[in-house]
C-alpha cells in the first residue's frame, strides 16, 4: 500500500466519522422536529432560523453539565460503558460501500474503508458487540433500574440477533457473497434485493428496530418503568455518548438496510447518468442517492417511534422467538426451494 493510498483512506475514515457524528447530531434535531409535526406542533424553533442550531445548544449543554460518578459505582467501568457504546456504534461504518469507485485524474478512490470479504458478518459482529456498552454501563452504575435495563438490553439483543442472522442468511443465498461491495454491485440499476427478499427485509427491519433499542422495542430505557433504564445514573457527556450511539446506530443500520436490500448507491438509469457526468462526478450522485435512502430510513425509524406504543416485555419475547424466528426459517426454506427450481 502506497503512502497516498493510506492518506486517502485516512481522509475517508475522517470524513465518514465526521458525517456520522453530524448526522447523529442532526438526528436529535430531526427527531424533535418530526415528533412535533406528527403531533401537530412546531418543534424547536428558537436557536437560529427554524431552530437549526438546537443540536449545538444541546451539545453545549451536555458539555457544561456536572459530571456525576455515583459513590458506589465501579469507576473505570462506569466510564468504559459509554465509550464502548459509541465506539462499537462508529466502527460499523467501515465496511459500507458509500459509492462506486471515484476516478479523479489518474487516481481511483474506493469509497469504502475496507472491502473485506466477510463484510456482512463483520456488521453482524459489531452489532452483537454493541450490547456490551449498555450492559457494562448498567452494571457499573450500581443501580437497580440500570441493572434491569442492562439485563433487558442483553436478552433483547441476543434474541433478535438470531432472527436477524437468519433473515440475512436468506439474502446471502440470493447474493452468494458476503462482501458488501459485491452485494451492492449486484443490485445495479433497479435489481434491488427487496424485490427478491421482501419477507427477509421485513424481518430485518423489525430486528434493526430491536437492535438499536428504538421504539417499539426501547424497553432497556423505558422511562415509565425503569426511570432512565441503563443510563439512569449518567449525566453530562457520558449520557450524551449513550444518546449519540443510539443515533449513530440508527444511521449505520439504515445504511446497511439501504445497501443490503434497497440497492445501496444504485438507482434506475444510473448508466445513462454515469455516461453523461463522467467518472469523477457520477459516483458522487450515487452516493447522494444512498444518503437519500438512508435519510428515508431514518425518517421511517422516527415515524414508527411516534406511531407505535412500546411492547410489553413478554410480547417482545413472544414476537422474537415465536414469530420472527419461525418466519425467518420458513423464508430460508422457501428461498432455497425457489433457487433450486430456477436453476
Amino acid at each position: 500500500m502506497e503512502l497516498t493510498d493510506i492518506i486517502v483512506k485516512f481522509i475517508l475514515v475522517f470524513i465518514i466519522f465526521a458525517i456520522s457524528l453530524v448526522i447523529a447530531m442532526y438526528s436529535t434535531y430531526a427527531e424533535r422536529k418530526i415528533a412535533a409535526f406528527f403531533q401537530d406542533r412546531i418543534g424547536p424553533n428558537r436557536a437560529g432560523p427554524w431552530g437549526i442550531f438546537q443540536p449545538l445548544a444541546d451539545g453545549g449543554k451536555m458539555f457544561l453539565k456536572e459530571e456525576i460518578i455515583p459513590t458506589n459505582a465501579s469507576g473505570f467501568l462506569f466510564i468504559a460503558g459509554p465509550s464502548l457504546a459509541i465506539m462499537t456504534a462508529c466502527i460499523g461504518s467501515a465496511v459500507i460501500p458509500w459509492g462506486q469507485k471515484l476516478t479523479i485524474g489518474s487516481h481511483v478512490i474506493d469509497l469504502q474503508v475496507a472491502d473485506i470479504n466477510v463484510g456482512v458478518l463483520y456488521i453482524f459482529g459489531v452489532v452483537s458487540l454493541g450490547v456490551y456498552g449498555v450492559m457494562i454501563g448498567g452494571w457499573a452504575s450500581n443501580n437497580k433500574y440500570s441493572l434491569l435495563g442492562a439485563i433487558r438490553a442483553a436478552s433483547q439483543n441476543i434474541s433478535y440477533e438470531i432472527s436477524m442472522g437468519l433473515s440475512i442468511i436468506a439474502l446471502l443465498m440470493v447474493t452468494g457473497t458476503l462482501s458488501l461491495r459485491q452485494i451492492a454491485e449486484q443490485q445495479h440499476g433497479w435489481h434491488w434485493n427487496i424485490l427478491y427478499q421482501p419477507v427477509g427485509f421485513l424481518l430485518f427491519i423489525v430486528c434493526a428496530f430491536a437492535e438499536t433499542n428504538r421504539t417499539p422495542f426501547d424497553l432497556p430505557e423505558c422511562e415509565t418503568e425503569l426511570v432512565g433504564g441503563y443510563h439512569t445514573e449518567y449525566s453530562s457527556m457520558k449520557l450524551g455518548f449513550y444518546l449519540f450511539s443510539e443515533y449513530i446506530n440508527m444511521f449505520i443500520s439504515s445504511a446497511v438496510m439501504a445497501t443490503l436490500y434497497w440497492g445501496g448507491y444504485n438507482y434506475p438509469g444510473m448508466d445513462w447518468v454515469l455516461a453523461h457526468t463522467g467518472p469523477a462526478i457520477g459516483p458522487l450522485i450515487g452516493t447522494a442517492v444512498l444518503f437519500a435512502k438512508i435519510f428515508l430510513f431514518i425518517f421511517f425509524f422516527m415515524w414508527v417511534r411516534w406511531t407505535i406504543p412500546r411492547f410489553r416485555y413478554d410480547q417482545l419475547m413472544d414476537l422474537g422467538w415465536k414469530i420472527l424466528i419461525p418466519l425467518a426459517i420458513a423464508n430460508i426454506v422457501i428461498t432455497g426451494i425457489v433457487i433450486t427450481l430456477i436453476k
Partner: peptide, 21 residues
C-alpha cells in the same frame, strides 16, 4: 394495524400545527 397507524400519523404530519408561538 401498524400500517393503519402509520397512515394516521402521516395524516397529522401534513396538518397545520395548532401551536401559537
Amino acid at each position: 394495524a401498524i400500517i393503519q397507524g402509520l397512515a394516521i400519523t402521516m395524516k397529522h404530519f401534513f396538518r397545520k400545527p395548532v401551536t401559537i408561538s
